[in-house]
Computed example of a mutant assay.
Amino acid sequence: MSNTRFSLTSPDLQEGHFMAKDQEFDGFGCNGANISPALNWQNAPEGTKSFAVTVFDPDAPTCSGFWHWLVTDIPAAATGLPRGAGKGSLPPGSRSFTNDYGSKNFGGACPPEGHGMHRYQFTVWALPEETLPAPDGASAAVVGFMLNAMALAKATLTATYAR
């Protein structure tokens, strides 16, 4: 048995550090490039048959946070997603769900002006099935529920942003 831990890294993000304007949303009063960062994962647990990637802001002024990106059914052979994959260039077989902006693509950071620092939790989930058992039109809450119920492991990188 290996002592290595499932982990997530990015050449575009650093744990606890401010994201670049490239990762800011383009809309809702924001004018960033809305480019998803490159994500790399390693040491997936034995039995992993697919991955999912989510981006969540727990500091959004809502009763339920804010979902920025939900992708499931990423093939088990994948070891990451390239920069800009959130504009629809995901690995074949991957499935995207509607984020809280109403899009199936990556939606960058766009906290309200003057609201303070927000955390953006980029999480990769190792899953024991090739397909997440959620219907295509499932809400972010249902997808999140299924991921938490099924995950063999997860790894999170948390970046920050404020306006």
Results as ranks from 00 to 15, higher is better:
His118Gln: 09
Thr158Tyr: 06
Phe25Val: 10
Ala109His: 05
Ala151Gly: 11
Trp69Leu: 14
Phe97Val: 11
Ala78Lys: 01
Pro92Cys: 10
Thr123Leu: 00
Leu127Tyr: 03
Asn34Lys: 07
Thr123Gly: 05
Ser89Pro: 03
Ala33Trp: 00
Ala153Trp: 03
Cys110Asp: 12
Ile35Asp: 00
Pro135Thr: 13
Asn31Val: 15
Gly32Phe: 13
Lys104Ala: 03
His115Ile: 06
Phe28Tyr: 12
Phe51Ile: 08
Asp73Ile: 11
Gly29Ser: 03
Leu8Asp: 02
Tyr161Val: 00
Phe6Leu: 03
Met146Cys: 12
Phe25Cys: 13
Lys104Gln: 10
Thr98Ser: 05
Asp100Met: 11
Tyr101Met: 15
Gln23Cys: 11
Tyr101Asn: 15
Thr62Glu: 09
Phe18Met: 13
Val124Leu: 06
Thr156Phe: 10
Leu13Ser: 02
Thr62Ser: 15
Arg163Glu: 14
Gln23Asp: 08
Val55Asp: 08
Asp22Cys: 00
Ser64Trp: 12
Pro128Tyr: 09
His68Gln: 10
Phe51Cys: 09
Gln121Asp: 08
Lys49Asn: 07
Ser2Ala: 13
Thr9Tyr: 00
Val142Arg: 13
Ala20Met: 04
Phe6Cys: 09
Gly88Phe: 02
Ala149Met: 04
Glu130Val: 14
Leu70Cys: 04
Thr48Lys: 06
Gly27Ser: 14
Met146Lys: 14
Thr131Ser: 15
Gly137Ser: 15
Pro135Gln: 13
Thr79Arg: 12
Cys110Met: 06
Asn40Lys: 13
Pro133Met: 01
Pro11Asp: 13
Gly88Tyr: 03
Pro58Val: 11
Pro111Tyr: 07
Lys87Ile: 07
Ser139Cys: 03
Val53Ser: 05
Ile74Asp: 10
Asn3His: 13
Ala85Arg: 00
Ser7His: 13
Asp12Phe: 03
Leu152Lys: 06
Pro111Glu: 09
Asn99Arg: 11
Lys104Leu: 00
Ser139Arg: 01
Thr54Tyr: 10
Gly47Lys: 01
Lys49Val: 05
Asp136Tyr: 04
Ala140His: 06
Ala76Asn: 04
Tyr161Asn: 10
Ala126Gln: 08
Leu39Gln: 01
Leu132Cys: 13
Ala76Gly: 07
Val143Gln: 07
Phe25Gln: 12
Leu8Thr: 01
Cys63Ala: 14
Ser2Asp: 14
Thr156Lys: 09
Ala155Arg: 08
Glu113Pro: 15
Trp69Gln: 02
Gly93Arg: 07
Phe18Tyr: 12
Gly29Lys: 05
Ile35Pro: 02
Gly16Phe: 02
Phe106Tyr: 12
Asp12Ser: 08
Glu15Val: 10
Gly108Asp: 00
Pro45Gln: 07
Phe6Asp: 04
Pro82Ile: 11
Asp136Val: 13
Gly32Trp: 10
Pro111Trp: 12
Ser50Arg: 03
Gly107Pro: 06
Pro112Thr: 04
Ser89Val: 12
Gly116Leu: 01
Met146Pro: 00
Thr156His: 08
His115Gly: 06
Arg95Lys: 15
Glu24Cys: 14
Gly84Cys: 05
